[in-house]
Write a protein that binds this DNA or RNA. Structure first.
Lengths: 159, 159
DNA sequence: TACGAAAGGTAGAATTTTCTACCGTAATAA
DNA sequence: TTATTACGGTAGAAAATTCTACCTTTCGTA
């Protein structure tokens, strides 16, 4: 991970660091993968937004914020930007008496999403070859347990 | 993780999301833990910097950047800021003919670090109770394998 | 009933982080 | 010898993200 490895192994061998490192690695991967195989017109986070809207069409802005670990104000800006670029359309809709914005994927957005989705299926099948169902189950169990231990020390609230 | 759970389990059950979620969880944990038990005068990243300097006294700014997954310019600003606040002292030093800044922890910084280190030992011992040595080994193995699979798909370069 | 909290959303300021460009030295290779 | 690249570092602009405050409606409950 760092050139002069011997100098840092001590710092890098703990669990929390490894998780952090992997998450960062994954972020870099997503950026590069997307640039190479999907579209330069959209960021990885924006792709996740398309994914979420596709699967939960009435997902709200606040829910998207939680899903992406960002503030709801920020997500609002991203959505507006995506609308400006013609990837989605934001339609005001009433739920009861309260006005909610429903995000609708345009044909342009749908095309990007379809292409990306196909590519991600490819990754998924590669992962399936490398990790058995039991491995994945155990892996996720470890992650959950790690969070539970942290949560037992202080009450963690995600923003 | 999100109130209306049923709506999102589908989106959240994949491996990459779980890792991302755990890393974010850990970040929130560090912030809250530090506020509560260590010191409000220093951020979690700054604590890692103190930790790194303590263990590798001649660590360079660029190396710190890689360790923390940030840009070297940004780390330079953080270090300057820490110097202004009296937590470290930056001394220009020559390595060969080239000038390098050596970061020295002041007594104030050392005190914060010692307190934090003691608290983190506590977390470590709790983790040791919940995860056996074999568990930790397996957990880290999973994480490494996950990165390797991604890396086989595109060549991932961390910034 | 009335009050406060929670949820959906926006605006603008403030902060954080990244992105270029630089400067100078060292090492390597054509 | 002369490029070229990598390393250590900085400055300033640009972009990303968060913070605060605000508006409106709903919901639970005292």
């Amino acid at each position: 991970m760092i050139k002069n490895i011997e100098r840092f192994t001590q710092l890098q061998e703990n669990l929390a660091y490894q998780i952090d490192y992997t998450a960062n690695f994954n972020r870099s991967f997503r950026r590069e993968f997307q640039m190479k195989y999907i579209s330069k017109d959209i960021s990885p986070d924006e792709f996740v937004i398309l994914y979420a809207i596709t699967n939960v069409p009435d997902i709200t802005q606040s829910e998207l914020a939680k899903l992406l670990f960002k503030g709801k104000a920020h997500i609002g800006k991203i959505l507006n930007d995506m609308e400006t670029r013609g990837i989605i359309k934001r339609a005001a809709e009433t739920r009861g008496n309260i006005i909610i914005k429903r995000n609708i994927i345009t044909p342009v957005g749908a095309e990007i999403y379809e292409k990306g989705n196909k590519e991600f299926q490819r990754i998924k099948s590669i992962m399936k070859k490398e990790f058995s169902d039991d491995d994945i189950k155990q892996f996720i169990l470890y992650l959950r347990k790690f969070r539970e231990v942290l949560n037992s020390i202080v009450d963690v609230k995600l923003k």
